[in-house]
Nucleic acid binder design. Structure first.
Lengths: 245, 245
DNA sequence: CCCGCGATTGACCAATTGGTCAAATTTGTG
DNA sequence: CACAAATTTGACCAATTGGTCAATCGCGGG
């Protein structure tokens, strides 16, 4: 039943024509953004665009976190954002592009807390601050953490480059700071890069595997008190593990 | 060659009849399994069946780990197992059932290492042994860990019940042992349940987020030496964190 | 007041997906 | 050997999915 009467509709606009049409949209988006920052006041138009994009990204983050890239549907994201599906394509072109926009936003937040780790700081204070900030992120933005975790879990096909270009150099820099502290005898000798892996794991587990933790603890969700308790546990366990009393 | 003399077979078995037809298969499967254990020797048939199922589960584990439940396709699993797609349905009925079979297998391995944590044991030795076993699992069966992680990440829709019925009681029992050790002054005071969360996180991160770790370390994969180094790091950090020198 | 352009939308594909079926083929057994 | 049950397989289907498109809407500038 393969052959049908479809042999009539041939070349029309297919393939690369789409991409060509889509790029202009992206172009004008960038233009609009520039205009809103540079010119007198953000016009209603560009503001609406930025808002719309932010709303879509927020909705997409929730849906991707809940179902993974493969399990999420543009339909579901559109519904979560309260928009018809073609709007998503209007703003982001494709599912993958939208996904990357979500990941990009996450990366920035993910890297930020490491700022506290600098050679001039006091080791104990710097690490405690870093861990607390990571814990705070896990509790306040669990969806972002889950999208990130999901991507890594599946081999990070969309951001291998980013890991190499941004995460890796950052970690090496921060690990050097810790090595310096160790050399000065200010903390126990340990593998500084692995220390980061452990801190990430110990903190993000509260976002990524929240169900497991809540189930084991017998809570419905982690209230502020439970969050404080978890934070205190992670901080003291790791600080003691680092020989920082 | 497609349409043929099929117009003869009409209303026959359709709709709910399917499920009915599939159940018998499952029934006979169980029967066969019993026969193979109870009777003289495993017959060629039942062994073949068990082998086939094991092969399918192994293939499914890889594919689910790499793409999540939503991203994995029965086609891909069939290809990975070297079988035509209908065979998967013959053995497991549906994608979800196959997924649950994979999860079930994982759970058993997941729970096993905790056996070392008993009141009679020496805290330091028991915990070290537990952590090392968890690390070993991460390195030898990363796909299983990822399937499990993926499921938790997305809210564990398929195994909430299992978490409540099996994981939770187990953890409570083991946490009680640790609390006892703490009460006896044999290790630093800390929250025993959260200690488990941290150990799980710190160990499984090497399976779940392997890409991230390899990228940061600049390795292609973690060779035996790197594995030993990671294990040593986690063991000593956590033991020191527990006040076990 | 109207014009132009970006934003919105419903209707619509082609491709893929999970799942089915009936016809073969293999296997164990009386 | 013959028969029935178990297994394998290619062809097929309905539903869903990512993505498209032409028609429309609405607002700000002339």
């Amino acid at each position: 039943m393969a052959v049908r009467s479809k042999e009539i509709a041939p070349a029309r606009a297919t393939g690369r024509a789409r991409a060509a049409r889509k790029q202009p949209a992206a172009g004008s988006r960038r233009r609009a953004a520039l205009a809103s920052t540079g010119r007198k006041g953000r016009t209603r138009k560009s503001r609406s665009r930025a808002d719309q994009q932010a709303a879509i990204i927020a909705a997409a983050e929730r849906v991707f976190a809940g179902a993974g890239f493969g399990g999420a549907t543009m339909q579901a994201i559109a519904a979560a954002a309260g928009l018809p599906k073609p709007n998503l394509h209007y703003y982001f072109g494709s599912k993958k592009a939208l996904y990357q926009a979500v990941l990009e936003r996450t990366l920035r937040e993910w890297l930020a807390p490491a700022d506290t780790i600098v050679a001039e700081a006091e080791p104990r204070e710097a690490l405690e601050c870093y861990i607390r900030e990571k814990m705070r992120q896990s509790f306040t933005r669990p969806y972002a953490s889950r999208v990130w975790a999901n991507e890594l879990l599946h081999g990070a096909p969309e951001l291998r480059g980013t890991l190499v270009r941004q995460l890796r150099p950052l970690v090496r820099r921060k690990a050097a700071v810790i090595d310096q502290w160790i050399a000065q005898g200010r903390m126990a000798p340990l593998d500084s890069m692995h220390l980061f892996f452990t801190i990430w794991a110990a903190t993000q587990t509260y976002a990524d595997f929240e169900v497991q933790i809540c189930t084991v603890l017998g809570h419905d969700a982690l209230d502020l008190e439970a969050q404080a308790r978890a934070t205190q546990h992670v901080v003291s366990l790791i600080l003691r593990g680092c020989g920082l009393v």
